[in-house]
Structure formats: structure tokens, C-alpha cells
Amino acid sequence: MTSRSADPPTRSRLTAEALSVGHGGQAVVQDIELDIFEGCMTALLGPNGSGKSTLLAGFARLLPALGGSVRLDGSDLATFPTRHVARVLGLLPQQPPVPEGLSVFDLVARGRFPHQGFFSQWSRQDEAAVGEALALAALADLADRPVETLSGGQRQRAWIAMVLAQETPLLLLDEPTTFLDAAHQVAILDLLRDLVRRHRRTVVCVLHDLNMALQYADRLVFLKEGRIRHVLTHPSQCDGRIIEEVFEMPVVSLKHPQSGLPVFLPCASRQPEARP
């Protein structure tokens, strides 16, 4: 944790301005003002239905802005050709389908689509990018394995490798660690932090596990009922009041003995069940 960057974030790559996003004309998130700073890992947090995934989908142009705009390096995201956006912005949606019959290599190679033209179908550069993505995700040995034979954690790493092969400076991930056990969660989050620290990538991810987010993210954004409630520029700013307000659950605060960062545990039930 000592490597957490102390420098102030440089510039905003992705900006929401008075943004509303939703489905079928119905806004799920509203009046969002948010900067995603370069070289940072930003975590979107909040209770179920708070609009985290919807906001991420808005950032990734999967859902159009119902009001306001998303700006990519200062210009409206909607004005860029979709292929150009795909070279800057990578996305891993929540629970992507399991592609039957594709090898890990095939799947990761699909990430090269935005870099390929009609006539230049597969280049040396593509080969190198896929190789590097496989190495980063520690999947080089499994490249020939069919994706459906992988374990949950390996499969998630394969999807992340596909997004890495896209070679985008910005990565958006929707719950990349959900359904994984603690060790696999840590492996994914270590990988993401490595991308931010060593490769200067900018990562935005929706996370469910509050304490994991506190240990790994540089900036925390709390959403509730479709609006941003708190933006913390460092996890140490998080306290019990924020958590109780956003999650409507009494908590006790602790300090992680190694990182010194806050950890929150739910209060023991005030009416404990009678034990035999």
C-alpha cells in the first residue's frame, strides 16, 4: 500500500456533465458530475439499484445520455466514431456470456477488433498485444484451452485479458470480482492495481466488496438512488457515517493493521438470537 500515489491526479480523461442515463427513456442515474482522473483507480460503490452499472454503461456509450453529456478528453463521447472510442475506452460488462468453443487465445484476440481494418486482418502488433495481455493476466500457459473449461477466476482473467488486448488507456469494469472467492478477488484487484501503477492505465470499476475497494481504489464514488452522494479522493477519508448513510446499515470502523486504511464491519445484531 505504500506505493499509493501521493501526487495529485493529472487530468480528467472522462467527465460526466449533468449526466442522466437510463433505460427506455427512464433515467436511472441523474445529474451526475464526475471526473475520472488519469492514472487512477476509481471505484463506484453503492447499494443494489443505486445506478453504479448504469453510470458505467453511460461512460461506455452502451446507454445514450438522456441529459447532459459524457466527455472524453474534453469532447462529447457521442461525436466520436465508435471504433475510435474502442481504441481509447475498454469495457468489461457484468457476467459476459461464456463463448463456447473459443480458446483463450481466440477470445483475447477478439480484443484487437478496433485496431484491425478490412484488409489488415492480423498483424505482428496484434500478435504482440495478445501475447502481452495473456502474460499480464497470467494466462500464457492456458492460451490453447477452451474458455468453457476454465475455472471462474481464470475465465474472469481471460475476459480481462481480452480488454487488455484492446490496449486502451481507459478501462471500465463492471463487478470484475463478483462471484469469485477472496483469493481470486485479490488476484484480479492486484492485476488492476498493477495496470494503474506500472502501466499508467486509468481504471474505473464497480465493486461490491466495500473493504476490498477501500484497500485498492485511489478514489471512491458513492452512489445512492441514482445520484452521487460522496466523492472521496483518498480511501482514508471514508468514515462510518458515510457508510451508514449510503448503505443504511450500522457499522463499526476498524483500521487495517497493515495498510492503515479503514475497514468496516456490520454491527452485531442488537437483538441476538437466543442460543441454546
Binding site: 456509450r61 452502451l62 472510442v85 475498454g90 477488433f113 478496433p114 484492446q166
Partner: peptide, 14 residues
């Protein structure tokens, strides 16, 4: 070829 990965990923891949 991007379609088999689901619509969200097709869009994300451009």
C-alpha cells in the same frame, strides 16, 4: 465475429 461475445462487448469493441 464480435457478435458472439454479446451485444455489450460488440459495442465496446467498436
Amino acid at each position: 465475429a464480435t457478435f458472439s461475445l454479446g451485444e455489450s462487448i460488440s459495442v465496446a469493441l467498436g
